[in-house]
Amino acid sequence: MSLLEVENLRVTFPTRKGPSEVVRGVSFTLGRERLGIVGESGSGKSQTGRAILGLTPAPGAATADRLSFDGTDLRSLSARQWRGLRGKRMSMVMQDPKFSLNPVMPVGKQLMEVLRTHGAGRAAAREKALQMLDAVQIRDPERVFRAYPHELSGGMGQRVMIAMMLVSEPDLLIADEPTSALDVTIQIEVLRILDKLVSEQGMGLIFISHDLRLVSSFCDRVLVMYAGRVVEELKASELHQAQHPYTQGLLNCLPQIDEDRYPLPTLDRDAAWAD
């Protein structure tokens, strides 16, 4: 049985001109593997991730023909059942630690909160949190534990975020552009840490990014999204065999170090692909 099954997922937001569908019938299954979702801004990749966690922001609404996580139908969960799953069995790393960490709460307290929410005692939670900070290769866990988010660099903040989301050893992690807000040099470090923990804990990963090359080097499979739809599904190793013109366009846009291209290629957007 697959870890996650998604069939015909749709996310709709009401607007003044009537409902606007930002995710339009996305289907895929996920085992304990790494799945990349690639697409440009507004393609619906982030909303797909949030819908899986049941966190479609109001007044939006998500529907699906099938949305099951390890045999549990996610569509009919109560708020309490959702809370039992989130943070414990599924979690999400978000883009920018500057905004995704609570600014007035020390980092350690935020880490402990996950474990405390799911029933751990204070001392055990503290110990586990410190271990986890160590696992994301933070040199002085005690000090970072006491620090406030603004006292950390972006890279450190994102490590804390990863620690927080993996501390309860979930089965599914959604990483929504986890390195987009970081410097390029730090990106690799953070990815390496994420990669190591994901393989160690053997969880399913959905890696959302606009960076096709990053995704293909990091994932087993790639979904390419355009205007709320999956236009192509590929093995990461067979990226160069992409059939869809949009994927080819994305690949062509990547700068090549050994050629001098002028003018730079632009991305074609055919209205027909959206249908």
Binding site: L55, L85, G87, K88, M94, D96, F99, S100, N102, P103
Partner: peptide, 26 residues
């Protein structure tokens, strides 16, 4: 409307705690 509220929801923190502890504290 801040992102750390989403983080708290992802963590499974109960709604009353999100409102009265996390958000109100800010």
């Amino acid at each position: 409307a801040q992102e750390y509220i989403t983080t708290a929801r992802v963590k499974g923190v109960p709604e009353w705690r999100i409102i009265w502890v996390q958000a109100l504290r800010n």
